[in-house]
Design a binder for these strands. Structure first.
Length: 550
RNA sequence: GCGCCUGUAGCUCAGCUGGAUAGAGCGUCGGACUACGAAUCCGUAGGUCGGGGGUUCGAAUCCCUCCAGGCGUACCA
């Protein structure tokens, strides 16, 4: 779409250079945009304004020469010079029916591109400690990570989704102890929970399950420690919740599997001269690489820090051949970024291959009033609770409505409302509505062939309304690549709301199925099919269903 | 103190590498179903883009500074 407009412009520039009206041979970073106002055309470019300083001539003068050459293209209806030197390009309706044809042909693939060129990227997200159920913050990370992975895939990247299991540190030990204490409690002992022990009811559940397994003389009786058992149980809970949320990972990477690799990583840093000993601890010279201060890798007591395993983990990712890394972290970890980047640089990598997306806080609301979360009891609102209450679709959509690094108010009541004010229903409704229109049409025995073979079938689509809607569809392709480039899945929700809105307006303004005008009906039904396709493709990127009935 | 994020309509937020008259939803107010789903649509009102400088043909967008809010600044994980 935009590509071919860019082609028209560069052809015009080439022609101008050939006939000598443009003399500078410098590359210019041309911007092609879609003007807000229809009188400024379908596309507009600032190329003349960029050339003006190089040519040392008035922008409007240059624009006039280029506009003439642009108008010569057979897809261009007319081309005008406006304002300080914009060139506004008006395309022929046949251009737009061509676009519609493309949507229909590509169907489920419309929106995909080769932008990523098969580059291997890894998206690591959620990575929650297996010490408790997932809460809503994890849910937001899961929704963003999964949607981003879908978008990157659509944009032509080779994507791997990974969950990093923190199963080596002290917190897993605390988990094991917590379960063990509850186990002994069930056996009649008096117990006292320490400050670091987990107090949620899920701990009791695990303790009970453990006892049951023991009674049955299960496999876990001897070989496996209660700590491993608890960790496994927690993980399976996490997997279940993620499955309920529709999120699947390609890899589950265990921190404990790193072990020797941590020493290797430290050794490599030492060889490269980034490590020194002080006060009985081993330090990493991160300050020289952009961090606020140097960091400890091995504590005076001999334990390796969490940071040390994180270095080893990222090193391992790169050894696995990923050319791009995406880490999705809670916003409270942003202080961590500088040291991780420092470690990549120290290991000899360009740290720009790592992108970190920070997930800001979610405030749960109920009709505008914040939902209290008992901090003392340690009872967070779990992701599972929210999925069960508002449904998976609404939950995912709401998590994706704001850009990741902006705080999000999640109103449970709004998410459940089946009304205009709820964007999920608004978008899904447009899909269901189209399905219903198509049913209606076939009941009236207006049948569409499975494939459009002749573009002239679409030629009745020439009104302003028809063209506007097709334009909206065409924007989807570049939206997807843009979202991939900037790693901002939230824009898909805005786009879908706009497209759904455009369709609803169109529907109210135009009779689609009409028995008198068969040609118009057929063409419009194809337009409906294309809108439905794009809505479905967009929702699929978000991991939200596209219902045929609601 | 230093660092990161945020500040756009009454509310919640979009605004792509600087572009032409700053947008949407909700909420206000007023309209539209004897035809395809009114879970919809149409219209109306509402803004010194936190303040002040600068860069240029042109700034919500880039730079500096100040103000306000959030978060982070561990030999914790």
């Amino acid at each position: 779409m935009r590509g071919s407009v860019a082609g028209i412009i560069s052809e015009a520039l080439k022609a101008a250079r050939q006939d000598g009206s443009i003399t500078s041979a410098d590359e210019v970073n041309v911007i092609i945009e879609k003007p807000k106002l229809p009188k400024f055309g379908d596309y507009s470019t600032n190329i003349a304004m960029l050339l003006a300083p190089k040519e040392k001539r008035a922008p409007r003068d240059i624009a006039a020469q280029l506009a003439e050459k642009i108008a010569a293209s057979d897809t261009v209806d007319k081309s005008e010079v406006a304002g300080p030197g914009f060139i506004n390009i008006f395309l022929k309706p046949s251009y737009w029916t061509g676009v519609l044809m493309e949507v229909l042909e590509m169907d489920g693939d419309f929106g995909t591109s080769e932008y990523g060129a098969g580059k291997k990227v890894q998206v690591e997200f959620v990575s929650a400690n297996p010490t408790g159920p997932l809460h809503i913050g994890h849910g937001r990370g899961a929704a963003v990570g999964d949607a981003l992975a879908n978008i990157l895939k659509a944009a032509g990247f080779d994507v791997t989704k990974e969950f990093y299991i923190n199963d080596a540190g002290k917190q897993v030990k605390n988990l094991g102890e917590s379960v063990d204490l509850r186990r002994r409690e069930y056996l009649g002992e008096d117990i006292e929970l320490g400050e670091n022990h987990y107090k949620g009811d899920y701990i009791k559940d695990i303790a009970l399950t453990y006892l049951k397994h023991q009674e049955e003389g299960g496999v876990l009786g001897g070989s496996s420690s209660i700590e491993d058992f608890a960790c496994e149980a927690m993980l399976s809970l996490v997997r279940t919740d993620l499955a309920a949320f529709g999120v699947e990972f390609d890899e589950w990477f265990s921190e404990s599997s790193l072990d020797k690799k941590i020493d290797e990583a430290i050794e490599e840093l030492r060889e490269k001269g980034h490590v020194y000993d002080k006060d009985g601890a081993v330090w990493f010279r991160t300050e020289a690489l952009g961090d606020d201060k140097d960091r400890v890798l091995i504590k005076a007591d001999g334990e390796r820090t969490y940071f040390a395993s994180d270095i080893a983990y990222h090193r391992d990712k790169l050894h696995r051949g990923f050319e791009g890394l995406v880490d999705i972290w809670g916003a409270d970890h942003h202080g961590y970024e500088a040291r991780v980047r420092a470690s990549l640089k120290a290991l000899g990598y360009d740290d720009s291959l790592l992108s970190i997306i920070f997930i800001q806080m979610v405030s749960l609301m109920r009709e505008g009033v914040p939902v209290q979360m008992g901090k003392r009891s340690g009872e967070f609102i779990t992701l599972r609770h929210v999925i069960d209450e508002v449904g998976r679709d609404a939950c995912r959509y709401f998590f994706l409505m704001r850009k990741a690094d902006a705080q999000l108010d999640f109103d449970l009541e709004l998410a459940k409302k089946e009304a205009t004010e709820n964007p999920v229903y608004y978008v899904q409704y447009s899909h269901a509505r189209i399905c219903s229109i198509l049913d209606h049409a076939s009941a009236k025995s207006v049948k569409l062939p499975t494939e459009v073979t002749d573009i002239s079938v679409l030629s009745p689509l020439s009104s302003q309304g028809d063209i506007e809607l097709i334009k909206k569809l065409s924007a989807f392709e570049e939206l997807v690549t843009k979202c991939a480039e900037d790693m901002e899945p939230h824009r898909v929700t805005y786009y879908l709301q706009e497209l759904a809105g455009a369709f609803h307006s169109y529907y109210n303004a135009n009779r689609i199925v009409s028995e008198e005008e068969k040609d118009v009906t057929t063409a419009r039904l194809y337009l409906c099919v294309a809108v439905r396709t794009v809505i479905a493709n967009g929702l699929r990127l978000l991991g939200v269903s596209a219902p045929e009935k609601m």
